[in-house]
Nucleic acid binder design. Structure first.
Length: 302
DNA sequence: GTCCAGGGATTCA
DNA sequence: TGAATCCATGGA
């Protein structure tokens, strides 16, 4: 298999620890890693490099599957299998999508798009930083945050650092955080980190709650409203029904489903809850990615 | 220089 | 309940 020694790998950057191959037929790595659900993946040629926990990971799509390389020897790859959700039967999920024209169009043009299962704190913190920011800007802020306050990691094409722990962030001050360029989001991130560290909210127990209770709990954190809570529950909590409604999705729903009749945001939210079914979050990600990639200008219309 | 970005909190009617 | 406004920052 030879991912670590493959000549197509970037010279001097190949994972020297170990590698692994999974046979997966319908997994679009590029779409999944670049679709705005995670913010730290970098593309180098035909491979992707990023950090999961404290492991620097290289990923590549190869014939009929995914190759992974790590710089630290691994005996158990379950952490990566979980992150990538490799064993999820994608067709069983997309078969549940509504059969309407816009949904099928999004499905057909984004085949293999998956949902990741991210670390809860990293996902929460990243999306607190996401409000009224373009994805490229969110990536930059997260990068600076890790660069300044994360722990240095072994391996990689660039000097990777871990995502700073909730304790590390809670121990900082607003000036430290604003220096990362996050502006008015700094007190939100700091306040949320401190609430969690002070046990005013048990982040891990949120994962044991049903969707409505978990959402309600997360929204107690400063800077976390319905949209960010739903992103966290979808991308880190495994709540497939969570349907984050942002400006892109509002425009997508209005233009794709109700092109002739103006709907209020409230009406569109209600529609999203009843129309997309038990895996609505998956459907949402398909619509989001479809709009971003295939209709980047359409989304800017009033 | 202007507009806008994977929003949330606050205010006011 | 809902509309308006403010919040920093930087890319397009």
């Amino acid at each position: 298999m030879g991912f670590p020694t493959n000549p197509r790998s970037i010279p001097g950057s190949t994972a020297s620890g170990c590698s692994r191959f999974w046979k997966v037929l319908d997994y679009d790595l590029a779409a999944t890693l670049s679709s705005g659900q995670a913010f730290r993946w970098e593309r180098f040629g035909d491979q992707w490099e990023g950090v999961i926990g404290e492991n620097v990971v290289q990923l590549r799509s190869s014939l009929g599957g995914i190759e992974a390389g790590a710089f630290v020897s691994q005996t158990d790859w379950s952490w990566l299998e979980k992150y990538l959700q490799i064993y999820v039967q994608l067709d069983a999920i997309t078969d549940c999508f509504p059969s309407d024209e816009p949904m099928q169009q999004a499905l057909n043009t984004c085949k293999g798009l998956r949902l990741l299962r991210q670390d809860l704190w990293e996902c929460l913190a990243s999306f607190i930083l996401s409000s009224t920011k373009q994805i490229v800007q969110i990536r930059r802020i997260v990068h600076r945050l890790c660069d300044r306050f994360g722990k240095p990691l072994i391996g990689g094409t660039i000097p990777w650092r871990s995502f700073p722990s909730v304790e590390r962030i809670a121990a900082l001050n607003e000036v430290d955080l604003r220096a990362c360029g996050m502006g008015f989001r700094a007190p939100y991130l700091l306040g949320s980190a401190r609430m969690i560290c002070n046990s005013e909210l048990d982040l891990n127990s949120v994962l044991t709650l049903d969707l409505v209770s978990a959402r309600e709990e997360l929204m107690k954190l400063p800077g976390v409203g319905r949209k960010i809570a739903d992103c966290v529950l979808l991308f880190a909590g495994g709540h497939d029904r969570a349907f984050p409604v942002d400006v892109w999705i509002l425009k997508a729903l209005q233009q794709l489903y109700f092109p002739r009749r103006k709907k209020t945001d409230r009406q569109l939210r209600a529609f999203s809850e009843r129309h997309f079914g038990p895996h609505g979050g998956f459907a949402q990600q398909y619509l989001f990615h479809y709009m971003r990639v295939h209709h980047p200008t359409l989304s800017k219309l009033p």
